[in-house]
Design a protein around this nucleic acid. Sequence first.
DNA 1: TAGGCTGTGGTTGCG
DNA 2: CCACAGCCTA
Length: 752
Amino acid sequence: MSSYLDQLNAVQRGAVTTVEGPVLVIAGPGSGKTRVLTFRIAHLIEQGIAPWEILALTFTNKAAREMKDRIEKVVGTRAQKVWAGTFHSIFARILRGEADKIGYPSNFTIYDTDDSKSLLRNIIKELNLSKDQYNENAILTRISSAKSNLISPLAYEQNAELMAQDKQTKRPFLHRIYSEYVSRCKRAGAMDFDDLLFQLYVLLHQNPDIADKYRQRFRYLLVDEFQDTNYLQYCIVKKLVVYPNSPQNICVVGDDAQSIYAFRGATIDNILDFKKDFPLLQTFKLEQNYRSTQHIVEAANHVISYNRRQIQKNIWTSKTDGQKIKVVKTQSDQEEAKRIADLIQEQKNRYHFRNADFAVLYRTNAQSRPFEEAMRRLNLPYRVYGNMSFYARKEVKDVLAYLRLIVNQNDDEALRRIINTPRRGIGDATLEKIALLAASKSQTLWQTLPEYQGTAREKNALQNFIAMMKAFITKSLKSNAYEIASYVLKQSTMMDNLKQDTSLEGTGRLENVNALLDAISSFSEEDELTDDIIMPDKSLSTYLQNIALVTDADNSDPNADVVTLMSVHSAKGLEYKSVILSGLEEDLFPSFMSKDTPEGLDEERRLFYVAITRAEEFLTLTYAANRYRHGQMKQCDPSRFLNEIPMESTDSLGGLAPIRRESSAPQTSRVSGNFSRAVTPQTVINPSDFKAAKPEDIEIGHKVLHMKFGEGKVIAIEGAKDNRVATIHFKDLTDQPQRKIMLKFAKLQIQG
DNA sequence: TAGGCTGTGGTTGCG
DNA sequence: CCACAGCCTA
């Protein structure tokens, strides 16, 4: 039998077969990370480990599903018993079984971001705080990051630094909002996305017996995309793995160069700390890129070398040079889209590519529209990811809100959503009075409805609503999810209202609601994979918890032959024969939100690195001189990242010309102003005196001068010809003096 | 209370 | 540009 181990290179095989003790896998782009993860799990199972003793945590449902599918190909249906899922979904499942221990009902509601913001708006209003000062997006970010750092409302209030920051941003009462937000969620039996992590930590921390139960159960733990975990996630992982006499069978896989979620609290410190927390750690570096051609790999390596702090690695490929990277400049975003569509058409014809071989990537989802129009004009089938998810549509959310309220009457956000949808004479004014009464009694809205003393008309309307909901609840006790949903749609008159609206949008809404019914119906009929510890069941409550964690990217059909349009963030982990990266303009990529701090800029650069490493054969970078933004045409400068990539460019006339490096003076000074790269060369270098040596002339022992890094000494050289990489010790770089530099690109002057 | 109109302002990424 | 809050009227 040809073993699955034969399909691995030596490093991969080591990462797969080292099953005992802590393991860190640093996995460069295209280095077979998923293969290693899945084969490792398959290997564990082949070694006799029960599938349900293996816990594999990912960031996206898609990654989890792909992993399960691929394990199944090696070990068969046993793979389905592996606990593989996102942090959020696995933790929600555990919490569902243990909720009573932390004072939550097992059918707790999961608040999505809209629910959280709406709750915050209400709290801000009730506390009589200015909603301009207390912008709910800012507040939610702050609360989220408090939770991600395990800071409770009480700890927040006692933290002088946080309180000082809030004072400075003119939001001194933020802690009160936080505290109120937490108690309202709890009262409503609701957890937001961060609570799914935070509450699990609380559960494990406060109940040693439960922590032990899961430690015994999950004897083998794997974490994908470890560079994107935040402090809280790492704390939970440690809870599960670090205890007396633990075998510490944990394997984390990540790439510091692809860390793109620092903005939501992810920290590559977790990778660095991992070595400290697990002294017996064995590290494997997957450095061979099987995905991309030489030009692309070299460009990526060069780009990422501009970042400060990184784990040293030498990503290489055995593929041929391949196609040169192309840069296309256009006059407007419209023209950019048109040129890209033309390019796709041309490459399709010339290389017999399928639509699915192409991806158009952009920094922000708002950029997708011109591309859609251009694709339609050429009849190129496409799919846009990251648009409003199906479950985020108003009519769908309305139906779901009814279902949520049936499952959990304390779900205030669901009640607010549907108490007057369709119109039944309970308007804002009445609802506000009820909300005030509820707040004064520390009750939920549902608990308060019968106690409200209003006009006869109001009371009548409320009574009808209560009676209707009670009928729904009764019905729910003896019906499946699909039956309940259709009953609700009919009895609430929502279905009638939808049918009456014959406009285009109205028909669309009706279709969406019918699609929702179909989805609920197939959920009710789906085969059940029971599990001995916590049984997934077919209840409405399970359904709601599942869909709360579904995102747009999860609903893709991998077999559809369509061009992919998506944000760079969503593209992580994917690969395409031809990648077109659009909108390479200052303030867009890098984003104006990030470019003012060195950390922000480094993260943008890692994002750029992720984008270009999606390409297998063709990489095209585009930028426009003018772009519609905020409603008006704005002039744009080319992205600084274009200067960090070694290549030739095609201008809008199609001719080949080297990219203009008008950089030297203004560009460079602007960059170094923002960049507190730990680079402060003591040696002052005058660019006009600088004479770069030929790459092949540089040898071990040479003293060299580098424009940015200053004086250094060559201590090693690996590779040959164009792949020569020198390890150079730069005396001025105190934090990390040894750098690996690809000689083909580096400008080094040989001294003395 | 419902519905229409106007004016303001935000404006990145994910589960 | 678009979403939506807030105001006004029936």
